[in-house]
Design a protein around this nucleic acid. Sequence first.
RNA 1: GGGUCCGUAGCUCAGUCUGGCUAGAGUACCUGCCUUUUAAGCAGGCUGUCGCGGGUUCAAAUCCCGUCGGACCCGCCA
Length: 541
Amino acid sequence: MMNSDRRVKEGGKELFWADQKTDEIVSRKQYRYLEKDIEPFSEYVVKTSASISGVLHIGRLSDTIRGESAVRALLDKGHKASLIWVAEDMDPLRKIPEGVPAEFSEHIGRPVTDIPDPWGCHKSYAEHHVEKYLKVLHEFVGVPMTRYSMMEEYRKGSFKPYIKKLLENLEAVIEIQNRYRDKNNPLRKGWAPWTPVCKNCGKIITPRVHDFTEEGRLPYTCSDYKFESTTAAGCGHEDEADPLRDEGKLMWKGEWAAQWALWNVCSEGAGKEYAVPNSAFFVNGELCERVLGYPMPVPIFYEHLMIDGKKMSASVGNVVYPTDWLEVAPAELLRFLYNKKLMKTRNFSWSELPKLYDEYDRTAAGYWSGRLEPTQKRLFEISQIGDVKPALGISFSMVAFLSKIFVDDASFIRSVERTGHFSSEVSDLVIDRLGKARLWAEKYGVGIPSLAEDSKGVRLSGDQSLFLCGLADFLEAGEHSEEEIQAEIYSLSKSIGLSTRDAFKAVYLTVLGEERGPRASTLIAALDRNWVVERFKYNYK
RNA sequence: GGGUCCGUAGCUCAGUCUGGCUAGAGUACCUGCCUUUUAAGCAGGCUGUCGCGGGUUCAAAUCCCGUCGGACCCGCCA
């Protein structure tokens, strides 16, 4: 295209978001909240984490995929970089997900590591989910991830120095938090940034700390805690906890900061709800810098994915699991979707999957022909896992369509070979796409035409009927190759004086009820001979 | 109440930070071509108050102010 490189900005700043982040990460000099220089990083660590209490759906892959893209962008620029994945397995269970026995409601409020595996195959509820998460996560990620467990880190004592610092500077911690809070609703008296596991009932959300003793101990009372839709019942136990010895964890505003400082995190993703200056991201940022002395990471804020214009939720019943995705689309396609501009709401729906495929294919074609704008080029590259895959010339919707007509792979491949889009280089990809498209057409593909029930409603001209009848005679006369059938269509229509266009139309209307279709000879050859003959003759009057 | 983000063709999306040729692509739709790829290929066409209103500027989709619509944050949660 004549404008294709008009916008190529020479020597300008990077345009692809992950490259911009790289730029920001490596070039920043100062703390955000302090007049202090940032010490050079020996390695750029990007963090992604997952809460373990719920199920893993594709929305949850967003943070990891985007974090991984940031790592890739850093690596591509020659920096040392890595991705760490943190299981938030010290967090309390908040509600009972589908498939978990109702009796588990007694565990609400307990750290997920301390809850038994409802399916009995792992040591704990947390381990069961972590293993499931990681298994599927690796399908969507290209760089290695270092895995951490919050529970293990707490038990190892990794957070002790930070817990100590936060408690030593309790006044500052409270002052910072109150500055971000509603002025009429400051933190209650006796609040602490660390919460113990109740020594009696083992819950982590119910102990309510109400003091900080001279000896550095935290007295608490175990009382009910209300989540959005559930309640963790407190046992009423009263006790004292030692934040440097006893089981417990940091509160979220404080914990995030401690994680950053512990792992030297330079960047982390967060949903758009954190993009506001008074969000937990920035509260942690300020705590991290002022109290822990570590520069807050560069945030990667993003919009959440919508499904059919709605939030993904079990109650709406529109949850898309990674396995659902992989059945009908490659991981690259989800990466592609997530790596587009971050702050635009993206909507996904099963019926529009072909459009996403088309956009992806078009980008792939542009990539290989070298006429992509730099942003799009990077988008495509970073969406890949492993080598950059070749572009496919046959669209997903076309494959879906063909899959409904050619039920066996062989006739599908014959049909595709005709188009010239089936080379040995892409054969695996095309066949893979066939499997996905076929499944998609079955499960979600409304409006994909298949063989017409009958041809009663089809109105044809006399010449068209004559043509079909002649073609039927030809087919009945003996076995013919596709080439011969195709040749007959042309010669027969010519002898009748029918335009090839109307001849083809007659075939498609009769067989599919549509005006167009795949290569006619391949279509006819793939169908049952008697069925075709009968169908063609029915229209002869 | 205070604050953040989004709004570009019927649809999917680039372009906005860093102002600059007549605002783009694909798709859909329409027209034409095809004696052999008829949902393919080729050629052409149509589609926009860049949410709206002001301002700055030689020049605004782009910067500033306001406004409308949508999403979201300001907790004893994460």
